[in-house]
Every structure is written in C-alpha cells, then in structure tokens.
C-alpha cells in the first residue's frame, strides 16, 4: 500500500478542570489514504468529533492533545506552530460541519466568504478568485453560481448552504476533507443529493475524506473503511464490507442490530442496554463492559488492546476469536 495521507498514532486528548482530568480521546490510531473515505462511527461521547478537531488543531481550551502524533504526509501536525496550522487549515485540510447555517457568517455574502478563503490561501487576484469561486459552486451542482455569490446565507435553503460549505471547503484543493455529520441536519431527499455529490467529488478530486457520523446508513452508502469508536478509543476497524458482513466487536454488532432496516422482515431491534457513559464516569477495564452482553470478570479489570484479527481488520475485545493480551501501562493510566 502507498504512503498514507494521514496517519494518526496513539492520539490522546485531555481536559483539565477543577473536577479532575477527563480524556475524551484515549489512544486513537488510524490512517487515511488518498482518495479514500474513512468513516469514523460512534455515538455522542465516543470522542469522534474531538478526534477530528485535534487533526485541525482546534481542540477547545482547556483541552489539549497531550500525547500521540498526527502526521499529514509525514509532517507531525501536533508539533506545528499556530501560524503554520492556520496556513494548513482550509488549504491542505478542510472541514465541513453539521449545521451549515451556523458555520456561515450571516452578515457577509456567499461571494465575500468564498473569495476570502480563496485569497487567504492562494495567490490569486480578485477576478481570478471570483472565477475560482464560480467554478467551485458549479462543481457542487449549484445552479446560477454568479447569482448565488451575491446572496446571503439566509437566502439559501439548507441543502444549498451545505453545498456552499462543501464548495468552500474544496476551493483550495485540500488533500484531506473532514466532514463532521455533513448530512445530519438535512432532509432525506437533500441528504441523498449531498451523499451523491460527495461520492462524485471523491472520484473526481482524489481527496482523502474523514466522515464523522453516527448514521450507519450513511456509512454503508459512501465509506471505504470504517473506524468504530467507543469511549474515546477505536474498538474496531475494517473495510466497510467487513464491518457489515463480519462485525467482531460486541459494540459494532449491537450498533448494527439497533438500526431499523429498510429491507427484510421487520423485527424487534437488538438494542444495546444502558447508555453511553460520560468521559468522567468511564469504567475501568474494557469501556464497553457494563453494556456488553458477553462481558466477563476479565473485561471489568483489564483493558483490551486493539489487535488484528484478519488482515486489515482490527478489534479491541477479549472474547471474540483471537488471543488475550493486555499491558500494564494501559491498566495504570485507566485507574
């Protein structure tokens, strides 16, 4: 396999406050290759959004990345200066957010905002950047791009705003695009349009995409590889077909079973009991054990490691096929 575009290794984020230290991201590692869409799946509190913010160097205070590395084409982002990171954001790495209304500035026109982004990162004059903006809006399927440039965000529908966001994110040809729940706030038929657009763009631009989502349907629709997160760590990672055909971790299995299906017979849903723990009340041992149907005493005490079961398929669980492993370092940091 070629050099990965992005390589996250043992990423750890912590928040210190008067009430103690909380770690929403606890040793996350995965890779993204060029032209590949990696879906990071998890529920609220899984640490998936914090992971994506770490890549951009945007972990909000008092949070900090205190361990691990994030390498973009070999360069470690965690060691970069703020000014270097600023240059990188919007240029090499772009992000689209869940709520397109709040991520666009309501008092400037679409044109103003797009041209600012383009001129900030590329050495283009005004007419050239307008031309670039029109090209990008056209690319994401916005009719009459010249007219839209003169409009304000509130004059556009939700789907259009999300297209504008994508156009802005792509306007500097980023190598990596982070999409945080890009379709969650949209209507179903509009979501289908945006997902379709993302598939087309991926083929056209060869951008690496990290898709943060809780929706397994969206994953099934566009992802190449899937990283399942729970309690701030990766619990399973495999290709999308592997995840759907042979899920290994009980959490992944439970998640798949709890989604109502559009095809096949209607059955009782296989719900996972309990709820996602908050970072401050994370259990010891395997973080999923209080909700796990097959947990044993071992799971309560020892923290399982991420290990490869079959090629390119990783899981963090003692009780599915594969050996039992643990290390002392992990145990001490948890307690």
């Amino acid at each position: 396999m070629s050099e990965p575009l992005l390589e996250i290794e043992d990423l750890r984020v912590r928040f210190r406050s008067d009430e103690g230290v909380v770690s929403p991201v606890n040793g996350v590692s995965f890779q993204v290759h060029e032209g590949e869409t990696v879906a990071v799946v998890g529920e609220s509190g899984s640490g998936k959004s914090m992971t994506s913010l770490s890549i951009l160097g945007l972990v909000p205070a008092p949070g900090e990345v205190y361990d691990g590395s994030i390498r973009l084409q070999g360069e470690d982002l965690t060691k970069m200066k703020r000014s270097q990171m600023r240059k990188l954001r919007g240029n090499e790495i772009s992000m689209i957010f869940q709520e397109p209304m709040t991520s666009l500035n309501p008092v400037f026109t679409i044109g103003n905002q797009m041209i600012e982004v383009i001129r900030l990162h590329q050495k283009l004059d005004k007419t050239e950047s307008i031309q670039q903006a029109v090209t990008m809006l056209d690319l994401v399927g916005i009719p009459e791009p010249e007219r839209v440039l003169k409009q304000f965000p509130h004059q556009l529908s939700g789907g259009m705003r999300q297209r504008v966001m994508i156009a802005m994110a792509l306007s500097c040809n980023p190598k990596l695009l982070i999409a945080d729940e890009p379709t969650t706030a949209l209507d179903v038929t509009i979501q289908a349009q945006i997902l379709n657009l993302m598939k087309e763009l991926k083929d056209e631009l060869n951008t690496g995409v990290i898709l943060i989502t809780h929706d397994l349907g969206v994953v099934a629709e566009v992802a190449d590889r899937v990283v399942v997160m729970y309690g701030g760590e990766v619990v399973e990672e495999a290709t999308v077909d592997e995840i759907f055909n042979h899920p290994v971790h009980p959490y992944t299995k439970g998640l798949l079973a709890s989604v109502p299906k559009m095809t096949g017979p209607v059955e009782e849903l296989g719900a996972i009991k309990g709820s996602v723990p908050t970072p401050s009340e994370m259990p010891t041992g395997c973080k999923f054990h209080p909700r796990c149907p097959i947990a044993t005493d071992l799971c309560k005490q020892v923290h399982p490691q991420l290990e490869e079961t079959t090629p390119q398929h990783f899981k963090r669980c003692f009780h599915t096929e594969g050996g039992v492993k643990h290390d002392e370092h992990e145990r001490s940091t948890i307690s």
Binding site: S157, G159, M160, D187, V188, T189, I190, Q191, A192, Q193, L195, N196, D215, G217, V218, A220, E221, A223, V240, D241, F244, V259, K261, M262, T263, G264
Partner: peptide, 22 residues
C-alpha cells in the same frame, strides 16, 4: 424510499436522487 441510505454496502446503487429543493 430510494433516498434513504442503504442498509448494507452491497446495496449501493447509482440511483440519481431527486433534484431541487422542497
């Protein structure tokens, strides 16, 4: 019905979603 994301990656199709906004 066709706009709903698929249950399984093997069901991906080239369905062209509805155009336009509500």
């Amino acid at each position: 019905l066709k706009s709903i994301p698929v249950d399984h990656p093997s069901l991906r199709s080239n369905y062209q979603p509805l155009e336009g906004d509500l």
